[in-house]
């Protein structure tokens, strides 16, 4: 058993985030007063509350024991890469290539190895995407790079 690192870490992050928000807002936006609140009033107060809550979360975690959850690094990276690729390429390359490649990226971390099933999946999902979003819902997105 170890310390409750999740809470320790998150408590710290939230406290810092709160302080950051409060500091940035105090510096950049007018605070006003209770009667006529400025744009900075809420962010500063909320940031300070969060900082306190972060500390309240972190301190007891130091003495508490917990088994940390294993982090799925590879899965996380693949999913985010697929999302970002799709986001950047859908209007530039069209959704057919974007979907095909995004599916290949995402499925690269699936428990089952192999390329054939992944290519087949990519074809099926691309066809589905085309049928649902362009065929049925008629969203104005290009299918291929040349079909704008």
């Amino acid at each position: 058993m170890q310390r409750d690192y999740h809470d320790l870490l998150w408590g710290g992050i939230l406290a810092l985030f709160g302080l950051g928000v409060a500091g940035y807002a105090a510096q950049s936006y007018d605070f006003g007063d209770l009667r006529r609140m400025g744009p900075g009033f809420f962010p500063v107060i909320l940031g300070l509350i969060l900082a306190v809550l972060g500390i309240v979360i972190a301190i007891p975690a130091w003495w508490r024991q917990a088994q940390p959850e294993p982090i799925a690094w590879r899965e996380g990276v693949a999913v985010l890469a697929a999302l970002l690729f799709f986001g950047f390429s859908m209007t530039r390359l069209g959704i057919a290539p974007a979907t095909f490649v995004a599916v290949l990226i995402a499925s690269s971390v699936a428990a089952r190895r192999g390329l054939v099933w992944r290519l087949m999946l990519a074809v099926v999902v691309t066809a589905l995407t085309w049928a649902i979003f362009l065929g049925a819902l008629d969203m104005p997105i290009p299918l291929f790079p040349w079909s704008r």
């Binding site: 530039r92 390359l93 290539p97 490649v101 290949l104 390329l115 790079p145 040349w146 704008r148």
Partner: peptide
């Protein structure tokens, strides 16, 4: 191997797109 081909065809596709729209 396949990854290479994908990348190359993507590249070709995007040049084609650029050529058309420009």
């Amino acid at each position: 191997m396949t990854r290479m081909t994908t990348r190359r065809s993507l590249l070709a596709a995007s040049t084609l797109a650029f050529g058309l729209t420009a």
